[in-house]
Amino acid sequence: MTDIQLRNTVNSFGWVAIIIHWVSAALVIFMFGLGLYMVDLGYYDPWYRDGLTLHKSLGVVFCAFLSARLIWRLIGLVPTGAKGGGTVEQKMAKVAHFLLYLLMFFLVVSGYLISTADGRGVEVFGLFSVPSVGEFIENQEDLSGEVHEIIAWSLIVLAGIHALAAFKHHFVDRDKILINMLYPGKK
């Protein structure tokens, strides 16, 4: 058990970063589908309420994962020894990764501002509630809703490009970048 690599090394991601990455990816994709689906449901659909309840609960979970990965990134290493591609590609990757973080952050914020615009908190699986910080602008839920939708689409498109880039590393450059995100490389 002691040889399970939790932390990142210079050359590869550790299990913590890998798990956070894939759980976040799964949440982003699932929540994107759920979000599109739930807003078009009829009033009498059983998922009319449960869809939104689940979406909000998972949103808070996603926020926890986002915070965890930022902290993990700040206190640990970011693998830099296994870069592929040219310098331009590496710069683009940096910008894209920064944008992914930014979009994820504002996705959470905009979603939160919809549901809390009337002072209600965000219930998480009926266990606890994240309190509202109030309404900052009139009809905050409308503007936040539009922003939330635009960010969600931007994120899913950018994540798609991110995935294509990973495939490019694997199939064209034939390097270890994608494999690195599946399990920690040998030391």
Binding site: I114, S115, A117, R120, Q140, E141, D142
Partner: peptide
């Protein structure tokens, strides 16, 4: 019509 207020932001968003 934007000013509709049913005391529930999520519902008001839907109503608008």
């Amino acid at each position: 019509t934007k000013s509709i207020d049913s005391n529930h932001a999520e519902r008001d968003k839907h109503l608008r």
